[in-house]
């Protein structure tokens, strides 16, 4: 309290007041309205809507494809981050900036482009088709779109952590006779693991809610390749507001849990890091 009294800077009341009003009007009240709307249902009704065969299939597709895409991104994201931090090659800074393309490219553009590329006559699809691999208009297409959308997360979370690894630690391991692979497995990987998990969770969480890039390539067959956000929209288009609301509340709850998990992971990563640093100084 005394810190507040001693603070000579102006504008605290105005700034905080404006922040709270703006946050409430734009985010909290509308989200509250969604939750309130779902309370018009009894729990049994809510449960029935949230667990129809079609809804369960949509959760399976959404979470399955998101998890697979996040695993792909974790694996290749680690390699890309490693290469960008540790190796020198021409055009490195250009490629580094290019990694953020999925953040900058509108999802609808990504959606129609990927659908065209992976269709039977597309640049990539025509080579996969003879191998018996159909990507466009199948659940595999959803994985491709979600991999694109989540690509920058793992790379961007890992880069600063890899930069911070002190070379002395690796040198010490090598001096003590560790092979490069042992050094990676025992020293480097444990140090970057929390960040890798955070990147995975961020990528997964983004993928779960994604709509624009998926609908063009998914084929959108109920029970097979229909994602939950699309099911919400199709209920809305049939004026089934209650049904849309119930599914949205399920999604919102899951997103909220993921947000808390990510905050926890970031806290873990930061704390571990600090402990390591202070330990090194002693």
């Amino acid at each position: 309290m005394s810190a507040k009294k001693n603070n000579v800077l102006p504008g605290f009341g105005l700034a905080l007041g404006y922040t709270l009003v703006y946050l409430s009007v734009l985010v909290l009240i509308p989200l509250g309205g969604l939750v309130l709307k779902s309370t018009a249902l009894t729990f049994a009704q809510f449960w029935d809507i949230a667990t129809t065969e079609r809804a369960l299939a949509a959760y399976r597709v959404t979470f399955g494809a998101s998890a697979l895409a996040a695993v792909i991104n974790a694996f290749f994201g680690l390699i890309v981050a490693w290469v960008l931090v540790r190796y020198d090659f021409p055009g490195k800074r250009l490629i580094d900036s290019f990694v953020d393309l999925p953040f900058a490219l509108p999802t609808a553009v990504a959606g129609i482009t990927l659908a065209t590329l992976y269709s039977t006559n597309g640049w990539i699809g025509k080579y996969l088709e003879p191998l018996g691999l159909k990507v466009a208009y199948t659940p595999l297409g959803i994985v491709v779109a979600l991999t694109f959308i989540g690509l920058p997360f793992v790379v961007r979370t890992l880069q600063p952590v890899i930069e911070d690894i002190e070379p002395e630690v690796e040198e010490a391991a090598a001096t003590l006779g560790a092979s490069r692979w042992q050094t990676f497995r025992r020293i480097i990987f444990p140090a970057i693991f929390p960040a890798l998990l955070t990147g995975f969770a961020l990528s997964f969480s983004r993928a779960v809610g994604e709509y624009g890039s998926v609908i063009f390539i998914a084929g959108n067959m109920p029970l097979i390749s229909e994602i939950t956000p699309l099911l919400i929209i199709s209920k809305l288009e049939q004026y089934d507001y209650v049904g849309a609301t119930a599914l949205a509340v399920v999604m919102l709850g899951i997103s909220f849990v993921l947000l808390l998990a990510i905050n926890g992971l970031q806290w873990w990563a930061a704390n571990r890091h600090n402990n390591r640093n202070t330990g090194g100084e002693q």
Binding site: V27, P30, L31, G33, L34, K37, S205, V208, G209, E210, Y211, G212, P229, L230, I232, I233, L236, Y241, A244, T245, A248, M251, L252, S255, F256, L258, L259
Partner: peptide, 16 residues
Amino acid sequence: LPFAVSPVIAGLIFVL
């Protein structure tokens, strides 16, 4: 919070 919410839900809340 808005980063964690699906864009579809972001639209839906204003319809509601």
